[in-house]
């Protein structure tokens, strides 16, 4: 984890299929993080029809708290294995984020439960700004480098020497995401609390008539979503090796796009949307340079051919356009299928 994972993936000399597999691996890793964050958006939307725009900041706080704990533990030179440090940091980030999520709902959203829908939406944006500035005060405005405690090990996925690889960190992120998604589905579909969450999502008044404390269920929904966000924050920080007070903003917007892509309010949709968005983004960033390379047109213009003789990469758009793809997807979904891929089937709301 010495540097930012390369979104362009394998070297140019690698076989074409390897490049593709590499982008796919990177995309699934990224998508797992998006999916976990998107679940937080979709759960809250499902139960109170609110887009909690401060959710991305909860992810950021998770990354920040974990950073502080990791830095402290590394600085203390305790004889702890790196994985234990990471686990301790995550276990500190989870309750911290849960407390933030609980407070947001209790202090800001609950008093607006019956207000016009614009009021809680603007409140959410305001909370996002407040949390960013609080983080700026606490953790400074500069990017905080995550101490490199985990030694990255790459595993080859193909027989080619410089072909596609997957790292232990990527395996960890994907594996942990699958476990968390499975756990959430079990909670929502197999436990009494989960059934109550779906009941409140469907008809909160009737849920109250069953003896369900609606406020408690809504609080727990925020707390669970924030716990997931904490883990996503640690994964993001570990993957990119950096935490920043504004990191939650773009990440949150992308996860929101993922939730909309899958069908907001739908748990399976958030998971699917997150994964798809990650893959689209990785493939887009990986290939946009080649696809927009003007040198493909060398045969049409002699001056272009001359320039391409010096530098064969004359791309109009580079991989720094990565962030664009999520929002292109969001716009396309909103135009052509506003209910998302899995629709807004009330059955899957939670």
């Amino acid at each position: 984890m010495a540097q930012r994972p390369d979104n362009r993936g394998a070297e140019h000399s690698a076989p074409i299929v390897d490049t593709f597999i590499q982008q796919l691996v990177n995309g699934i890793t990224l998508g797992s993080v998006y999916a976990i964050v998107a679940l937080g958006y979709t759960m809250v939307y499902g139960i109170i029809q609110l887009i909690n725009f401060a959710h991305g900041e909860v992810v950021m706080i998770g990354a920040m708290v974990a950073y502080t704990v990791i830095a402290a533990l590394v600085g203390a030179h305790l004889p702890l294995p790196p994985l234990a440090i990471l686990v301790i940091a995550t276990l500190c980030a989870i309750p911290a984020c849960m407390a933030v999520g609980f407070t947001l709902e209790r202090v800001a959203y609950r008093p607006l439960r019956n207000a016009p829908r614009l009021a809680p939406l603007i409140t959410a944006i305001g909370l996002s700004i407040i949390l960013q500035n609080l983080a700026l005060i606490i953790w400074s405005r500069s990017p905080l480098p995550y101490p490199q405690i985990i030694d990255t090990v790459s595993y080859h996925l193909t027989p080619h020497a410089n072909g596609a690889t997957i790292t232990n960190v990527q395996v960890g992120i994907i594996g942990l995401s699958i476990v968390m998604m499975g756990g959430l589905l079990l909670l929502v579909y197999r436990t009494k609390l989960g059934i109550a969450m779906r009941a409140v999502a469907q008809n909160s008044q009737v849920a109250g008539l069953m003896g369900i404390d609606i406020n408690r269920v809504i609080s727990l929904t925020f707390v669970i979503g924030s716990g997931l966000a904490a883990v996503a924050g640690v994964m993001d920080g570990t993957y990119y090796g950096v935490a920043h007070y504004q990191m939650g903003f773009i990440l949150g917007l992308k996860a929101f796009s993922a939730a909309v892509l899958g069908g907001i309010g739908n748990l399976g949709g958030a998971m699917l949307g997150g994964l798809l968005l990650g893959v689209i983004e990785a493939l887009g960033a990986g290939y946009v340079g080649d696809l927009t390379n003007l040198c493909h047109l060398s045969g049409w213009s002699s001056s272009l051919a001359q320039r391409c003789a010096d530098d064969p990469h004359l791309a109009v758009f580079g991989s720094n356009y990565q962030d664009v793809f999520a929002f292109i997807v969001l716009i396309l979904v909103l135009v052509f299928r506003p209910s998302g891929l899995l629709g807004e089937r009330v059955a899957d709301r939670a």
Binding site: I195, R198, A199, Q202, N203, Q205, V206, A207, L209, R345, V346, A347, D348, R349
Partner: peptide, 8 residues
């Protein structure tokens, strides 16, 4: 109007 949870 009964108010059953239709999706459950």
């Amino acid at each position: 109007g009964r108010g059953v949870f239709g999706a459950l």
